[in-house]
Simulated scan of single mutants.
Amino acid sequence: MANIMRWGGADITEPFRRFLEGDMTSWLRVEEYRDAGSMVVKAEVPGIDPVKDVDIELVGNDLRINVRHEEKSEHKGKEGYRSEFRYGTFSRTVSLPGPVSEGDIRATYDDGILEVRIPLPEETGGTSSRKIPVSRTGATAGAGGSAAGQA
């Protein structure tokens, strides 16, 4: 599988890459979308205390979300006593579309859903596209001259 990873490089999507590396247990599944000038990242993480169990960091243009989850249960009955526990840390790094201010990011937790809202940076220059000219070099430029300088 290491050969597959070297061959695919960055072309392999994050979930598939984590599957091949055997890292699915520590991966936090999120939903990302845009809403009213903000990027919204949602994760379903029931049964946590958001104050103690969630860490959100802004590192450059990446948002890092770490969630710790611990669950304990005890069963006492006529048949005996059984105790179970599960715990783990789940994380996800989400690339942001540009630089944002840490003070503008808002995170809320309601009914098991963690929601992080990141205001999108203002786009400068609008959404218009511009064609970039390509010039030829060398002897294959042809008799018609070089395309350099033409728009």
Rank of each mutant, 00 (worst) to 15 (best):
E74N: 12
A151M: 10
G149R: 04
P119N: 02
R117I: 00
G77K: 08
P133H: 01
T93L: 01
R130P: 00
L58R: 03
V59C: 02
R86A: 14
E14G: 06
I48H: 07
I4D: 04
K42I: 03
N3E: 15
R6C: 12
D35P: 04
R34T: 06
R34M: 06
I65V: 10
T13Q: 14
P97A: 02
T137V: 07
A139Y: 08
R64C: 04
Y87A: 13
P119T: 02
A43Q: 08
A43M: 10
R17A: 15
R18H: 14
H75K: 13
L20Q: 09
L114K: 01
D23E: 15
K42L: 07
G142I: 10
G77P: 09
D49N: 15
G144I: 13
K72Y: 15
I4A: 12
P119G: 00
A10P: 03
D53Y: 11
G149T: 06
G77M: 10
R6M: 13
S101V: 02
G145H: 05
L120G: 00
T89I: 12
R82Y: 05
V100H: 01
W27P: 02
R86L: 12
K42E: 14
A139G: 07
D35C: 09
K78E: 11
A148W: 12
E57V: 08
E71Q: 15
S95R: 04
A141H: 06
V41N: 04
D62Q: 09
G144Q: 11
G9Y: 08
E74W: 11
A2K: 12
G22F: 12
I105K: 00
V54T: 13
S38D: 08
G138D: 07
S26F: 09
P99M: 06
P97V: 01
W27V: 05
T25K: 06
H69M: 10
S83W: 10
M5F: 09
V30N: 04
V59G: 00
Y81L: 13
S135W: 08
I113A: 05
S128P: 03
T127L: 06
Y81V: 10
D104L: 04
V59Q: 05
G60I: 01
D104P: 00
E21K: 15
E21D: 14
T124H: 04
T140V: 05
L63T: 03
V67W: 10
W7T: 11
K42F: 02
E14I: 07
R136H: 06
T127D: 06
H75G: 11
R136N: 08
H69Y: 07
G37N: 05
E74I: 05
D111G: 06
G144F: 10
L28E: 06
H75R: 14
G145K: 04
T89C: 05
I118Q: 00
D111M: 13
M5E: 13
V59I: 13
L28F: 09
D110H: 15
D55F: 09
M24R: 13
R92I: 06
D111H: 12
H69P: 02
V41Q: 03
I132S: 08
D35V: 07
Y109P: 05
G126F: 02
G138L: 05
